[in-house]
Design a protein around this nucleic acid. Structure first.
Lengths: 333, 333
DNA sequence: AGAATAGCTGTAAACGTTTGCACTTTTTGG
DNA sequence: CCAAAAAGTGCAAACGTTTACAGCTATTCT
């Protein structure tokens, strides 16, 4: 096995010091005389010594590894969040163990337990929803956790997100001012905290405030074909303006509308509540609530580094600014 | 610290056995009497004992962790590959450490060294290109490596991919049979092995075989706006049929064409050489070489599990079938 | 019944680091 | 120049497992 030919012992022997000193050199401890440090470094280079991170992890109880829990890697929403996380993790020299939980073999709490067994120093949780068992699992551990791009009604968990209620209200207002009065809300999952506690209340309040009646909420519309198939229902219900949680779903509606000869935005306006790359490359391009996904990820990871170092946190719930990006799926005024 | 309140010792004491026996129970070793096994399991459940994977890794020299090297998480091509990898990894109980190398702070060989230091049991490499230093790094280690969705001229590395040359030729043939004679090749990076040794030769050979002249190869066209901006050049060069490596780039060309009033596919046909979700949701939908990305990832991971178990491999270079999926960006015949 | 064998369990040495403590050497200040 | 403080170093125990190896206890066979 070539796997670990040279250990800290070999270096110590060659450099005629103890392993403790080698360890100090490796870890940049200042209590080493300049010339011994250089001598040790020379040996390290000559032997191509590389510390065994597993042994370091066991001895120091820090693995410089963080866990990422994500529902679906191929959902660009999470991919863009992950990118922000990854960049900051690299900066702070953390590795990332990624656990995808879309696969129903892997429940949230199992995923969490798996990460804890691997002794990750922290966890970033990105699923839209935080089931009770997952919250329990987090509460049982000392390992810090940050929610990224989502919210929980557990106020104890630090999170980074946008003000979904405000954003949705602003989007509804845009539609309303464009003269659309038969507004609908299209949701992926009605039971996530973001939807149940933010988007739905925002929608209901808006409808009530403007005397627009009950309105229409469509649930469990999750991908392109769901959106495509929903379109005829929307027409039947006389919808002329719609907010859609996922942009890929919005594209489905858009394509169905185009195929049916419906004029967008004249006859129907579409706004997506989370924009990825996709929203901007389809035609007509989608008006969108642009969440700063990369930044949410980056800030979440930065926050986690602080928690892992037991630094003081000024605020646990961070809200980043969003933008309402007007494109071709709403009136050009 | 609650981090590790209970160890194998605690279980051993409570169950009145040695830690060795507890270890055997945890690892499903059969050499344990039924009633002691049950007694131990009961204690494990009562104390909520969870093995420390880091200690296990150090003692057993297996971490049940594999490393993934990927250029860009937000590129759906790699995301879809990753999904296949992830599913099989879950099945075989491996965790995944993901390392993104798009960030120029992280070179390939550093990424590899980082994974090796973490003592991963295997590595899947997904970048389009395998730089010489990376190949060297792989050769120095015993840790098995599999290339997924890419090729290398290092035949010693197992890989899973499609026959790019054949696929491209078939696509060119489609354009040719639709009557397009001024064919172009649009590449992300001309120096990757896949492009330099497969796509470009296939293109040149096709052009020569059909007396179509030198042809036009456009390089370093990597994203939507690159594609969009390239369009006028294509027109200027009289191109009427084009193969594009990335689908997001193809969409850029498509959108520019639509904006310019060019009829697709009548005046120009577009085929993308790698289809993700995006290719199918734009309008007109893109004709594409559909690589079985999920399967490539899954097969690569399966292959890696065999290598990690020192099982015999019947073939190192695996080629999976692709499909030429005709959509609206080529003639409907 | 006694020997051989198989099944079960415990002991203790790894695995490759980090780190508290004690000790020695050097530096500093009066 | 000496005492006190600071800097540098090594020793050895820890981190929480796995796993030879040995030993002990049933079981099987003749």
């Amino acid at each position: 096995m070539r796997k670990q030919d040279i250990t800290i012992y070999d270096v110590a022997r060659e450099a005629k010091v103890s392993m403790a000193t080698v360890s100090r050199v490796v870890n940049g401890n200042t209590n080493v005389r300049k010339d011994t440090r250089e001598r040790v470094l020379k040996v390290i280079n000559r032997l191509h010594y590389q510390p065994n991170a597993v042994a370091q992890g066991l001895a120091s109880k820090r693995t410089t590894t963080v866990g990422l829990i994500v529902p679906d890697l191929t959902n660009l929403y999470f991919a863009e969040l992950s990118k922000g996380i990854d960049d900051i993790a690299l900066l702070y020299k953390y590795n990332i163990i990624i656990t995808s939980i879309e696969n129903r073999l892997m429940k949230e709490d199992q995923a969490i337990q798996g990460l804890l067994n691997k002794q990750v120093d922290g966890i970033i949780y990105m699923s839209d929803n935080l089931p009770e068992e997952a919250a329990e699992a987090f509460k049982r551990t000392d390992t810090p956790v940050v929610l990224a791009g989502t919210k929980s009604n557990h106020q104890e968990f630090p999170s980074v997100a946008i003000d979904y209620m405000k954003a949705d209200t602003e989007a509804l207002n845009l539609l309303y001012n464009d003269g659309k009065k038969n507004l609908a809300l299209v949701l992926d999952d009605p039971d996530t905290v973001v939807n149940a506690e933010n988007r739905i209340p925002a929608y209901k309040k808006f409808m009530a405030d403007h005397n627009l009646g009950e309105g229409h909420i469509y649930s469990n519309i999750k991908d392109h074909s769901d959106g495509y198939n929903l379109y005829s229902q929307l027409r039947q219900d006389g919808i002329d303006g719609v907010i859609v949680t996922r942009d890929i779903t919005a594209v489905g509606i858009l394509n169905a509308a185009t195929d049916a000869g419906t004029k967008i935005p004249e006859e129907m306006e579409i706004v997506t509540a989370s924009a990825t790359q996709i929203a901007s490359v389809v035609r007509p391009a989608l008006t969108a609530i642009r969440q700063p996904l990369y930044d949410i990820g980056a800030v979440a990871m930065r926050l986690l580094t602080k928690l892992m170092n037991n630094e003081e946190i000024d605020q646990k719930q961070i809200e980043l600014p969003y933008e309402l990006l007007k494109k071709q799926s709403t009136a050009n005024k």
